[in-house]
Write a protein that binds this DNA or RNA. Structure first.
Lengths: 223, 223
DNA sequence: GTCTATATTGGGATAGAC
DNA sequence: GTCTATCCCAATATAGAC
């Protein structure tokens, strides 16, 4: 059951190849050899296109134009491959959200762009497809769960800073708002995925922006 | 690939054994023979306890103390089993929500109970575990997706009626509110599952109730 | 480091007895 | 209508050549 100890995958099995604290900073793909990068990229494409069930060694190797055995060599076993895959998904998703939200100059503009951007994120079914594929596995596997939990902590932090970046004290009080914002994006993505025509995502986002406005203006006029 | 035609599973493959319109009314389990019911109940337990990957014929048969071959006889193949499983999950989840929300007499009390009940639903990781297990499959398989989409339509309808049951006209304007309510429950369940200690679900629900209050009181004072 | 070939396992489907 | 036994196949892991 245990993977052999000779390959470069040794370091992965300690669980500290990418400690959660650094997930938001480093690109986990950059340090990998070319073959491993190709394999990971192919796995991501397959996960998005055909789901978790399509993530077989043979399919990944074919999609990457690499040898099947290389997967075992670089990632040890399927668990190691999944951990690396989640790392790469976490990194990309987080960078996209940070870039999206921090582009605007003023706090008010940031919030509006955030709201508007989220509705586009919801409509982008592709990234959520991949996320919902790995979610059940992340909820079960402690190692994966820590990785994804760190991603979500970064999400909430980003939303909080987006609404009010004056200080850590008040920003921490905004964590419930960040939780709601993220929850609404995820939850609306579910409804959109289940019923693209019947679920009026834009209308729901409009209502949310309207309901949240008092809180945001209150923060704007506060010292 | 096609299942044989002799068993009682024939009717299932037309996709109209349980048309979506009736999912909220009938109990799909009631009409099944005892062996099929045992198998379905065992599959539900396995799905909640060990995830989708554990849903093998051998495991289900062992958990149900029935024969492996009976699965093929009653449900045709794995797709038929999944459809029946989703039907049973849909029915139970919906009935629980309806009962939860319609127990209170006045509209105001209903809303408060709804908010309060939702936070308990979020904390009940078990049912959401099963839901997140089947979600990726439901998003891919059209037949399953229709079933789950119908469930969500019922959810939104229930929330709308809970907030304001005076008439269909105003209730339809409340659909965005129902969407947000459901989305928040789902999204907070994700955050709770990923990080039970770090995610303050109760705090987020409190903030949501506070933000939603203006809309609810506006409805209360309207004619 | 990379690939080919293979061993081993386990799941899904089905024939046929009862 | 239910069960037992079996077949076929696909998937992972690994040994060993290059």
């Amino acid at each position: 059951m245990r993977a052999r100890q000779s390959g470069p995958d040794r370091q992965r099995h300690g669980g500290d190849a990418h400690p959660p604290e650094r997930l938001l900073l480093d690109d986990p793909m950059a340090a990998l050899p070319p073959t491993a990068r190709h394999l990971l990229a192919a796995a991501r494409r397959l996960l998005i296109r055909d789901g978790y069930g399509a993530l077989t060694f043979a399919a990944i190797a074919a999609e990457a134009d690499e040898a099947k055995g290389s997967i075992g060599y670089h990632f040890g076993n399927k668990d190691g491959l999944m951990a690396a895959l989640v790392d790469s998904l976490v990194h990309d998703a987080n960078r996209a959200l940070i870039r999206e939200s921090e582009a605007q100059p003023t706090a008010a503009a940031k919030v509006h762009v955030l709201m508007d951007g989220e509705s586009r994120i919801v409509a982008d079914a592709e990234s959520f497809q991949a996320f919902f594929e790995i979610l059940p596995h992340a909820l079960r596997d402690p190692a994966l769960r820590r990785r994804v939990a760190t991603l979500y902590d970064g999400y909430r932090e980003t939303v909080s800073r987006c609404v009010d970046d004056t200080g850590a004290t008040r920003a921490r009080r905004l964590r419930p708002f960040g939780m709601l914002m993220i929850a609404i994006v995820d939850g609306l993505a579910i409804q959109h995925g289940l019923d693209p025509d019947g679920a009026d995502v834009a209308g729901a986002i409009r209502l949310w922006e309207q309901l949240a406005r008092p809180l945001l203006t209150e923060l704007a006029v506060a010292p």
